[in-house]
Amino acid sequence: MKGKVVAINISERKGVPKKTIVQGMFRTDHGLEGDAHAGNWHRQVSLLGIESIEKMKAIGIEGLCTGKFAENITTEGIALWQLPVGTKLKIGETIQEVTQIGKECHTKCAIFHQVGNCVMPTEGIFTKVLKDGIVKMGDEILVLEEEKVL
């Protein structure tokens, strides 16, 4: 299964839309350098498919773009929420492992208030970085088989 990176997004604070950057440095056991969600925990990097964003546009929500749902990596071509926890992904120079599918939304964050709904709780995923590297817009995303990771 293959996909591609549509955008890399970053923010200095949690709970706000992220701005798109051309490339980002992703560090092992940390995540995207300079991002508010980075750190040594299981949700270092968040990913959301452009297909999910397009679905929200199709129901009439205006002003949506990459980063609006606070995702670090906007993807295309992979049904992220169908990947099992533990799946390894080669994204650009990095290797990342899926650690969580979706999330519970305890409070309605700025994103929810701006767009009126959020797809991250059901269609976004989280990863931890296993191998450092740069990820750029347009990079390929490969779902790795276990033996290719070792």
Rank of each mutant, 00 (worst) to 15 (best):
P17T: 03
H37A: 06
S11Q: 02
H106Y: 14
G92D: 10
T20D: 15
E147H: 11
R43T: 09
Q23W: 10
F112C: 01
E71Y: 00
A58W: 06
I95P: 02
K88W: 12
E147L: 12
H106R: 13
Q100P: 09
G63P: 00
E97K: 04
G39V: 07
A110C: 07
T94F: 06
L142R: 10
K128Q: 15
R27S: 12
T87M: 04
V98I: 13
V22I: 05
K88D: 11
K14I: 03
H37S: 14
V16D: 07
M56W: 13
A7Y: 01
R13S: 12
F112Q: 02
I101P: 02
K108S: 11
T87D: 05
A79V: 12
M56H: 06
V16F: 13
I101S: 12
H37M: 05
L144V: 03
T107Q: 12
I21V: 15
L32A: 09
I125S: 04
E97H: 00
E145R: 15
G67M: 02
E147I: 04
P84D: 09
V149F: 08
I59S: 05
K88H: 13
I134T: 12
G67P: 03
E104T: 14
I73E: 00
L32C: 01
K57T: 13
E33G: 00
V143H: 00
Q44I: 09
G39M: 04
M137S: 09
C109Y: 11
G3V: 03
G102W: 09
S11V: 02
G116M: 06
V143E: 03
T99P: 05
K18C: 05
Q82K: 10
F112K: 05
I78E: 06
W81N: 10
L64E: 06
Q23F: 10
A36R: 02
E123W: 11
L48G: 03
E104K: 14
T66E: 14
E33W: 02
L83E: 11
I59L: 15
D35Y: 15
T94D: 07
D139Q: 06
K128M: 13
G116R: 07
E12D: 09
G63R: 03
A36T: 06
L48Q: 08
R43M: 05
E12Q: 12
I134V: 12
L83G: 10
E146R: 11
I78F: 04
L47R: 13
F112M: 08
K55A: 14
L144P: 02
G60K: 00
E97R: 03
V45Q: 04
E33N: 03
A7K: 01
E51M: 11
W41E: 10
G24I: 07
H106W: 08
Q82I: 06
E97S: 11
I21C: 04
I134G: 08
K2W: 11
E104H: 14
K19W: 03
C105E: 13
V5M: 00
T74A: 01
S52E: 12
T127K: 03
K88M: 09
E62G: 05
V6P: 04
L130V: 10
E146V: 14
E97D: 07
T66V: 08
G67N: 04
T122G: 15
G60Y: 01
E145A: 15
Q44T: 05
Q23M: 11
G67A: 04
L89T: 07
I141F: 10
P17D: 06
V22C: 08
T75W: 09
Q114G: 10
Q44R: 11
T28L: 09
Q96T: 08
I8Q: 01
C109F: 13
C105A: 07
G34I: 00
E97Q: 15
